[in-house]
Design a protein around this nucleic acid. Structure first.
Length: 724
DNA sequence: CTCTACGAATTTTTT
DNA sequence: ATTCGTAGAG
């Protein structure tokens, strides 16, 4: 008899129902904070321990590496043993694995390399140059977007109809040229991983049936974020097998703009008739007021699956709404509240400032610096995306695959070795004419003496360097290989000679890369005997690494609403709640996009465990212009009963009876103060009132003095004079 | 090749 | 306002 107490005891009724359901197509609609990862983890362990499914027969798919890691960790914890042959990974990671295993059938060279989006953009720019197209008329970003959008829908250039439309026709031509170059260079972009993996299964019945038989149970996290090709891939693997278990929340679909199809969750019913839907609505994160407010906001969306979060914990505090005078005042308010939280013993890391766009972080950062409060901003360059790291990787990639044109172009003259734009242009022409890679074109040109002596020597030197590195590092340990390449490529020297701290940091990062290679364990989930270098390079592309220096310090968290998804904080500040900012100006016209903004608002609100602050500014400087935005419509969608307005200013309109008796001899009476009023001070000179708070002898004002900066003054003693 | 100047854009991000 | 990328000059 198997003891399932540990497995089922921590679950509520709905969760248990989902975990123990018989094998069938299942959709678990898991609200925010309802324990969706727990359900997924327990479901998998249930299948292994109770249903007798071998870990070998289980597939679990996530969107981020972080989620995949977390899931594996929790499964192992519950199982009390490692799960080596259980496939858990991201769509991209799993697709990559399939393509490596079946490179031949996927029509890819064994040495194919994964490109990240920056690499992809470079390739596209090169294509545009090669086609003599003006980048102003054909913005590379837009082309990239177009190509990825097609791939996300499973559409290849050859599938696209010539409609006679000039724009469309040109785009197709670019797409086609792009495909050709990628094929020639053995390069695969992110969208291609998915598309190619789909085609592999679709066009190779033997491969498909192999995996259909292998994966007895398939699980998907964040199903609302799947795009067309990902869903198609899942269906290929599971159709008619009653073994697809998906977890998602249509109310948290916020990635429609990058191809996610919320409709997938709605059409699940159609594609898997007779599937079961289980809703997880009990929330273990937030207080009642926050949940009810969030429920009300999201209720404004149409066509939802329908779901209402509830909690057994109490009502908690109402949401605090603060109308700031301007964006500076907004930041001031937030930082004051954080200060108060810390003073009462709260941890900085339990507070988060969430904003719609990255540009908004600045005000808060400045204030936090002044206040001396440590903080961490999410987003920005990650380790494997840094230029120096990408350069080092490019050398390694060339060693693995000489035909990798992106890498070739990247480092052929980095560090500078006298191979100018002209030479590379010539190479490109030959490569194009012969339909081959830059490396081979270079070989041809050298062989036929088609280059000037100087350029030829430089180029030959470069090629010898790569060949020599490849020969020397043959059979070396991965980290030694990386170390040797970093040293001999001349990159270290190059950055040491480049000026100042910038260069120093880059050298450190390169050393860190060697370290990363040392720590890299190619055996994690490596059932195939792939070279460690290939795996390391794929790892670098598929997992760009953490943001700068993983500091587990106690820091205030600053991030966009998007990056907050999946996280939780005791105290959350949603700032910039203004029309045009949030919802974003670009979304207000289109009802679909507006609904996505509303879901984003819902996501933000449901991050808060204890306290939720929402703020907006009555005046905001944006793109150098002063704006007077209206408060966000989402604020109006929250019933007043859940909101408490915070007023730092004196309540001028307060009834006389309630007005406190003033004892101190303030030189101005309270009713004379207004925000924005100009005043003068004997010592600080002229200034403008930003804030008013407290009453009577306690009354104080925050004033921005022209000379002395922003000060808080007790009015009773300040001796201010009002200026007209 | 590096430096300067000018112009244009400016939601959200993982893989 | 600020940043980022390109074009043109030295």
């Amino acid at each position: 008899m198997i003891d399932v107490t540990d497995l089922l005891d921590p679950l509520n009724d709905a969760q248990r129902q989902a975990v123990t359901a018989p094998s069938q197509a299942m959709l678990v609609l898991a609200g925010a904070g309802s324990g969706k990862t727990r359900v997924l983890v327990h479901r998998i362990v249930w299948q292994i321990q109770v249903q007798g499914v071998s870990p070998h027969g289980i597939l679990a798919v996530t969107f981020t590496n972080k989620a995949a890691r977390e899931m594996r960790g929790r499964i192992e914890e519950l199982l009390q043993r490692p799960t080596h042959n259980l496939w858990i990974g991201t769509f991209h990671g799993l697709a990559h694995r399939l393509l490596r295993r079946h490179a031949n059938q996927a029509k890819l060279p064994e040495t194919f390399q994964v490109m990240d989006s920056a690499d992809q953009l470079r390739v596209i720019k090169r294509i545009l140059q090669g086609m003599n197209l003006d980048e102003a008329k054909w913005p590379p970003k837009q082309v990239q977007w177009f190509i990825n959008a097609q791939k996300d829908e499973g559409v290849r250039a050859r599938h696209m109809p010539e409609t006679g439309d000039l724009y469309q026709g040109q785009m197709i031509a670019i797409y086609r040229a792009y495909e050709e170059l990628c094929d020639r260079s053995g390069l695969v972009d992110f969208a291609e991983l998915l598309l190619r993996a789909h085609e592999l299964l679709r066009d190779n019945p033997d491969v498909l049936s192999f995996y259909q038989e292998r994966f007895q149970q398939v699980h998907v996290d964040e199903f609302q974020d799947t795009n067309t090709i990902q869903y198609a891939w899942l269906r290929l693997l599971t159709q008619d097998l009653n073994n697809l278990f998906v977890v998602g929340d249509d109310d948290q679909s916020i990635y429609g703009w990058r191809g996610a199809r919320i409709e997938n969750i709605y059409s699940f019913q159609k594609h898997f008739p007779g599937h079961e839907v289980i809703k997880l609505e009990q929330n273990y994160r937030s207080t009642g007021n926050i949940l009810k407010a969030a429920n009300q906001v999201i209720a404004h969306n149409e066509g939802r699956m329908g779901k209402e979060l509830w909690t057994e914990s109490g009502e908690g505090d109402p949401i605090s709404l603060y109308a700031a005078f301007n964006e500076q005042d907004e930041a001031f308010f937030v930082i004051e509240r954080i200060r108060a939280w810390i003073k009462e013993g709260g941890a900085r890391a339990d507070t988060a400032i969430l904003y719609r766009s990255n540009a908004q972080s600045r005000q808060f950062e400045e204030r936090l610096v002044v206040a001396g409060i440590p903080y961490r901003v999410y987003g920005g360059l990650r380790f494997f995306e840094r230029a120096e790291i990408k350069n080092a990787l490019a050398y390694l990639r060339l060693i693995a695959n000489r035909d990798d044109d992106v890498s070739f172009e990247r480092v052929v003259n980095t560090p500078t070795r006298g191979i100018g734009a002209k030479t590379v242009d010539d190479l490109r022409i030959i490569a194009r004419d012969r339909g081959t890679s830059l490396w081979r074109a270079a070989a041809i040109m050298l062989e036929h003496g088609m280059l000037s002596a100087r350029a030829g020597n430089a180029l030959a030197g470069f090629m010898q360097l790569i060949d020599r590195l490849a020969a020397e590092t043959q059979g070396m340990e991965l980290f030694e290989q990386v170390k040797r390449v970093v040293e001999k490529s001349g990159l270290i020297e190059f950055y040491q000679n480049s000026k100042g701290e910038q260069g120093e940091e880059k050298v450190e990062n390169l050393e860190e890369l060697v370290n990363a290679a040392r720590l890299f364990d190619p055996n994690i989930g490596n059932e195939d005997n792939l070279g460690p270098l290939e795996l390391f390079l794929a790892h670098a592309a598929l997992e760009a690494g953490e943001m700068q220096g993983e500091d587990f310090d106690d820091c205030v968290q600053l991030m966009t609403l998007h990056s907050a998804k999946g996280l939780e904080f005791k105290v959350v500040f949603m700032v910039g709640m203004e029309e045009g900012l949030f919802p974003s100006l670009q979304s207000v016209e289109d009802p679909k996009r507006l609904e996505e903004e509303r879901r984003l608002c819902y996501v933000g609100m449901t991050r808060a465990m204890q306290t939720l602050y929402m703020t907006y500014a009555e005046s905001r400087r944006l793109y150098g212009r002063e704006n007077y935005p209206r408060p966000s419509r989402f604020l109006r969608e929250i019933p007043a009963e859940f909101i408490q307005e915070v007023r730092l200013r004196a309540q001028v309109s307060r009834p006389a009876a309630a007005a406190p008796v003033r004892q101190a001899s303030a030189s101005l009476s309270v009713s004379q103060y207004k925000l924005g009023q100009r005043v003068s001070h004997t010592k600080f000179g002229e200034g403008v009132i930003l804030q008013l708070e407290g009453q009577g002898a306690q009354e104080r004002a925050q004033i921005n003095f022209k000379g002395a900066g922003v000060k808080w003054l007790m009015l009773a003693f300040a001796g201010l004079n009002a200026l007209s």
